[in-house]
Amino acid sequence: MTAFSRLRNYGVLALMACLLLTGCKPKDNAASGTTHATSADGGPPKVAIIISTLNNPWFVVLANTARDRAKELGYDATVFDSQNDPAKESANFDNALASGYKAILLNPTDAKGSVANVRRAKATGVPVFCIDREIDAIDAATSQILSDSYSGCVVLGQYFVKQVGEQGSYVELLGLVGDNNTWNRSKGFHSVVDRYPGLKMVAQQSADFDRAKALEVLEPILQAHPDINAVFCGNDAMAMGAYQALLAAGKADTVKVFGFDGADDVVKLIAEGKIAATGMQFPKLMARTAAEDADKYIKGERNFPQKNPVGVELVTTDNVSKFGDYGRKADTQ
């Protein structure tokens, strides 16, 4: 046998070994109860914060709060931006798992698509704590700290009917269609508004939770339906885009805009009477809870609720003075 053919045979054997190992389950550190006081290089243990997008101030607050709280607890925290792209999220998981991160705080890009990433982390013993958005599995993440979007939008829907009345027409701007929050918000809102037959939805389109896209989507709708009374937006970034479109069309004073998130710019516009209402989601509370839960897990705690819903509060011109900085002023949520 020549040296070349021997080398080739070794290569084939190595390839076969790789294929066989593909299905093997690595040691589950979580199951063995291993705790990690330091990272492999002797520095502080690392926590990854993987966020669906940083192209929205609300998610920047979520990411920065989680990072800052993790640092306060003694971790080396890094934020990864998935840019609303499940493929980028998967690459961020690859990076975090290969680099020895001890926990992942995840704001998923897709309820179904992100499950595989979370399972991959779990299989390697790295706990995942979902923040704000859920994944469609109850046996993958260690815990999911979630906004109660449905209940928040039920209350928002009731306020919508009070403000707009039982007769009128409106537009709904949806968020990302693959995100459960999009539908929980929409269904919560419609569970109320659809009970009033005089309220007609003339258009329902996705603007991907994006301000610029909301502006782009609403402009032609306003040309087709110039007499609408209100716009219900699945988040505050889209509410800002909708308000901008209405301002450009000269309709900002007559069409009521409703958002959801509790973003600072929208809270300020509610105080000025320019936006009707939003739902305060408390991103700082969720991010801090996720970081603290990760810390508890690393220190040995294993008892976490699979889903930990965080209540949403209605913010209107009547109570806006109580809110600011992404929470209630009094308790700094």
Partner: peptide, 22 residues
């Protein structure tokens, strides 16, 4: 009847038992 008073008020149902909150 709107909202979740009965679903959440009785203590008989738990969101953690549902993979999809929808």
């Amino acid at each position: 009847i709107f909202g979740n008073a009965v679903r959440d008020g009785t203590g008989l149902l738990n969101v953690s038992d549902f993979a999809d909150s929808q």
